[in-house]
Amino acid sequence: MFFRIVNRVEEAIISLLLVAMTLLVFWEVILRFGFSTGVSWGQEATLHLSAWFVLFGASYGLKVGAHIGVDAFLRLFAPLGQRLLTGVALILSLAYCGLFIYGSWVYLAKMHMIGIELEDIPVPAWLAHGILLVGFVFLGIRLLELFWRVIVGRATGFAMVDEAKESMQLADELRAESAPAATDGGAR
């Protein structure tokens, strides 16, 4: 139950960020083209929304297997071998995360100390850039979770998404829809 809620909240935040930045840019075009005016904080806001979107979404992407990678080599091994190699990859990934968490912390602490704000939006820089730390902490948690599943044998790899498989899903949907329509020859 708890995890279902976390999941829904995560999905809602990610979708909201994407929709917000799309609509903001769209709105700026309407304002400029239709009313010869702009949003003075628009550009900075869009860019920061995109930063939040990517950094917050990275860990969600790991959970749902949205990141792409090459698993051809891994597949040459038996499941135990795959789990071992994935374990190594996970340790290195955790190191990556740890280095970034440390770096972000130092960076944000410095920004906090100096006390500067963003250029067009009166928000402290450390707060607006804080997603660096949040994002990498979340990513680290997800990596640990995956590590645990590899140890107990419930996963053998990063379970990356296949863009091809994804497109296939779309193909299946289309086929299901068009099955009756396509009987009269060709695609009409």
Binding site: G69, F73, T86, L92, A95
Partner: peptide, 18 residues
């Protein structure tokens, strides 16, 4: 090396750089 281990490409790029 990281890519062969099946690491997501994004993390492999970032890890090798850092």
């Amino acid at each position: 090396g990281c890519m062969l281990l099946g690491m997501p490409i994004a993390i492999a790029l970032g890890f090798s750089s850092i």
